[in-house]
Design a protein around this nucleic acid. Sequence first.
DNA 1: TCTGGGGTCCTAGGACCC
DNA 2: TCTGGGGTCCTAGGACCC
Length: 428
Amino acid sequence: MAGRYACGVSSVPPIRRIAHLDMDAFFASVELLRYPQLKGLAVVIGGGRRKVDEIIRQKYADRPLSEIPAAAFPLLKDYVGRGVITTATYAARQFGVGSAMGMMKAARLAPDALVLPVDFEEVRKYSRGFKAIIREIAPVVEDRGVDEVYIDFTDVPGGQREGGRVLARLIQKAIHGQTGLTCSIGIAPNKLIAKMASEFNKPNGISVVHEADVQTRIWPLPVRKINGIGPKAEVKLHQLQLHTIGDIAAQQREWLVDNFGKAYGAWMHDAAWGRDDRPIVTESEPVSMSRETTFDRDLHAVRDRVELGAIFTDLCRQVAQDLRRKGYVGRTIGIKLRYDDFRIATRDQTIEEFTCDPDTIRKVAGQCLKRVQLERRLRLLGVRVGKLEKSSSQQPATAVREQPALYASADTPADPQADTLAGTLDLF
DNA sequence: TCTGGGGTCCTAGGACCC
DNA sequence: TCTGGGGTCCTAGGACCC
């Protein structure tokens, strides 16, 4: 039986090594590839309401992008409009601006930072690119959005060397070599710790956290660093005098369950102890698809009903197009709206037949709108289709046909009789 | 000078059925 | 007469994430 051990490492089960890879300042870095002259400058990516990009290109139509002087780019302090920052270069982060911050607030902190619009096409292209590069090296990858993935290093050749560092370096080099972009990687026994570890050494860093390191490296962190503890849970934890992950770990599981509920309390206890056995999910089906838009100014269902109706129909058309393009049909159709006071209301209705037809979506969504209070001004309107199923019929990539006039078009004079909420509702 | 757009998952009550 | 549970589906809202 001693022979069982004689063959050495091959008989030792590999240690589970999960990597979390996070692209560094992804949206901003993609822009810097196009505008290398902005490297090192404070640049903020976001907005998109004003087509900054187009303005610049018109002004410098005959010049290559890389020769447009930095002075030609608009400044944050001159930016007007709603919206939040998607990301900022590290130079801009020095001023305290960062993701999800309102543009107006950011303009106070870094008035002279440059603003660039979001170019989703370009970002998606690089997103597909870096993921393909990773999959060539390590095939078990879980997609976590445009700039993040989990990777299972466990059975990848070299994935165990130096705790995963060697493979991580290889992936960083491959991505940088082929795209010019950098990323940060955390390696740990599970997704939860790997996710925290990838933040330890940003940008362009690697950190390995072992199970035994949880007390020294994870417990001192603020509770908010746990993926799954958001602003609400943080407030409640602070009220209970718990500020670090170690503070949570020191509590009885039952006490956490009493305070946060059966599922969440137990999960929180496990998370604080670094326990997480979620698998890497390499494939998943979408659950819902939606389109929503925040208006340039708050709109009223009666006074702005023509504009609102046109936007509404357009959202339905876009969702239908998304469904068709990706080959899905759904049978729960819903709306979402955000009032001017930021309260959110949703309504949905499940129908018999699966659909991706814009007219059907428009009709059912219109019925949903009738069930919601429309006295307040609206800030946002959205349309969602859920309970999705892969559409069986092959959908030819035909253009979505023009809509019948379900709503009063902009050049139709408004019917004075319909200038009431009831009249408006009939239009939906 | 508030706070985008696209998602997932969970909870909880009511309807309805067995 | 009184009064079970369990299961599933639908709907609304909310927390959280990228």
